[in-house]
Design a protein around this nucleic acid. Structure first.
Lengths: 150, 150
DNA sequence: GGTGAAAATCAATCGGC
DNA sequence: GCCGATTGATTTTCACC
C-alpha cells in the first residue's frame, strides 16, 4: 500500500467493517467532505486495492447455521490444474473463502450452510464437480466462537 | 433458509456479488420495485441471515500479508477449559476467526499477519499463552484464492 | 480539499390485491 | 400478508473555486 496515505487506509478499513456504508457516512468517519472521499475511493478502487464487496452470511434466526471447513487435494500440481480449480471455485457463492496452503497441494475452503443436511446438496452440486480433485476432507464447525472481524 | 423464498435468496446472492449495489439496482436485478426490495432486505438482515458486509482487498503489490490456519487441541473437554480458552481468544485482534469443530476437541483459528516473520511473535505472545492447550498445529496459506466474489 | 446545486436514490406512507 | 406508487428527505455526483 505504498501509494496510500493514512486516510486512504482508513477508508479501506471502514469499508471492511461495513461495505454498505454510505459515502456521506464514510466521509464523516474519515474526516473528509463527501466529494473528496468519493474521489479517493474511486481512485483506490481504480488502482485495484479493493477487489470487491461482499455480504457475509449469518446463521439465520433459528441459529442452526453451520460452517464447514473443507480440505482439498488436487490430482496434480500443474499450473493448469490450479487455475482450472480456482476458476471453478469462484462460481459458487456458498464458498466464502479459499486458501492455497503451503507445504502441499491442499486448498482450504470455508462454506456457510443454513443447516447440516444442506451439505448433501453442496457435496453433490459443488464439491463433486470441482475439477482435478484427488481427495476431499470435510470438517464441521459446531460453534462459531469468534466471528470474522476485519 | 426455511424462511426465505427464491427472491430473498437472489437478493443475498446479488449482495454477495456486490455488497455496494444500490437498492434500486438490487431491486432491478431481482425483479422487484425498490420499496419491496428494501423491505425484504431489511427483513433478511433483521432475521440475521446476513452477518455483515465487507470489502475484499485486491491482490495489489502490497499483498505481503499472510494467513495462518491454526488447529488447537485442548487438554480436556471440561466446560471451564472451553470457556477459559475462548475468553483468552477474544483478547487478540490478530485472531480473525475461531471455530469449535465437531468430532473432537479441536478449535480452528485464522490469523492474519503482515508478514511471515511476524509469526514468531504471535507464537510467543499469543499461541503459547492460551490456557489449557495440549497441541497446536499451524498451516500457512501462500495465497488467498478467494476472499469472496470479485 | 471544499462548496453548492442538480440528479439520483432512499425510506416512509399510502391504497390495492 | 405482500406488492407497487408516491413523495419528501437524504445522498450522490458533478462542475467549479
Amino acid at each position: 500500500m505504498r501509494g496510500l496515505d493514512s486516510i486512504d487506509r482508513n477508508i479501506i478499513r471502514q469499508l471492511q467493517l461495513n461495505a454498505r456504508i454510505s459515502n456521506k457516512d464514510l466521509a464523516e468517519a474519515v474526516g473528509l467532505s463527501p466529494s473528496a472521499c468519493l474521489r479517493r475511493l474511486t481512485s483506490i478502487e481504480k488502482q485495484g486495492y479493493i477487489r470487491g464487496y461482499t455480504a457475509l452470511l449469518g446463521q439465520g434466526e433459528d441459529n442452526d447455521g453451520i460452517t464447514v471447513i473443507i480440505n482439498i487435494t488436487l490430482e496434480r500440481q500443474a499450473e493448469d490444474y490450479l487455475s482450472r480449480f480456482e476458476a471453478a471455485i469462484r462460481k459458487f457463492p456458498e464458498i466464502q473463502e479459499c486458501f492455497l496452503m503451503a507445504g502441499g497441494l491442499d486448498y482450504m475452503l470455508r462454506i456457510e450452510l443454513d443447516s447440516a443436511h444442506e451439505f448433501e446438496r453442496v457435496h453433490k452440486d459443488i464439491l463433486s464437480k470441482l475439477p482435478g480433485v484427488a481427495r476431499i476432507q470435510s470438517s464441521f464447525s459446531i460453534r462459531n466462537v469468534l466471528k470474522a472481524r476485519p
